[in-house]
Amino acid sequence: MRDVAVVGFAQRQMDVFPGSPTMVELLVPLFAECYEQTGWTRSDIDFWCSGSSDYLAGRSFSFVQAVDAIGALPPVNESHVEMDAAWALYEAWVKIQTGEVDTALVYGFGKSSAGLLRRVLALQLDPYTLTPLWPDTVSLAGLQARLGIEAGLWDEKAMAEVVARSLTDAEGREYPIRSGATTAAELLAAPLYADPLRKHDCAPVTDGAAAIVLAAGDKARDVCERPAWITGIAHNVDSLHLGGRELTTSASATRAAAAVGSLDGVEIAELHAPFSHQELILREALGLGADVRISPSGGALTGNPMFSAGLIRIGEAASSIIRGEAGRTLGHATSGPLLQQNLVTVMEA
């Protein structure tokens, strides 16, 4: 396998992006940041890959206009996944492994606020027996949370502690849209919203975009003092059928982690957990010990831009290496209802 590293990362998160669902206007400054970080221009990027969703934007081919932000004449080597851009990063990593390209810019974007997100996402379910009931994302998460609570796997206090840590970590940071030091006790005083969930247990509806620059070998070393080398990356999927899988664990996250190899020595894990109890599931599924710092960025509970939030977790985990704050980190992304699909990557200085 070739040595491939994250050498650039840029992101934006907000309550409501005031521009078009193509988000071209938001991608232009993100790409500019990536160029500034690497000293590269468009022509130094061998491969482009993005992640986004037509149903989030409410129209077919929503990703097509995003190509404008690249400035794609002369033409570019480019691809797109209808998934969180973490999987676009995976495709780009594979492309670099083929030896056909040495550098890639990966981006994801989504205007979650354009529709009623928790309703739109009901379209991800079985179209014959589930979508016609329009089960919203929050209700589905509530089913999962209660299963764990009543099985004694976690409790509301543990969930509140996840939220308290996330909000406290997010304070003073540039990108989270929710933040503020707080305690589990304070949070538990809030009313239930979707029993057993409180609003703070659910990621906020977030608009945003993110971009990551990947480079192989010396190309990475040339532009980054301390590249975040990807030492393992893998993903895996479970059945969507709610009655057909164990909802209080994440078998696919466990399998992805196993495919990545040992997680020993991971200092920071940025977990993409859109609901508080899902962080508890993921920590268990990935076998992360108490010594692993979880999502110091604030995590998805403080900002969860659809289709880039997973890529942002990888970017945050990489940035802590690039900035010299950690030597080995983990980035995780999830996709689909109730942690159906999971991607794990481990990076090292």
């Binding site: 149903y55 129209r59 077919s60 998934m83 991800q124 079985d126 179209p127 479970d238 689909g336 159906q340």
Partner: peptide, 14 residues
């Protein structure tokens, strides 16, 4: 995805 009215149908098809 608008053709079939399923968002990311590979999830349900997995």
């Amino acid at each position: 995805d608008l053709f079939e009215g399923v968002m990311m149908p590979e999830l349900y098809l997995a």
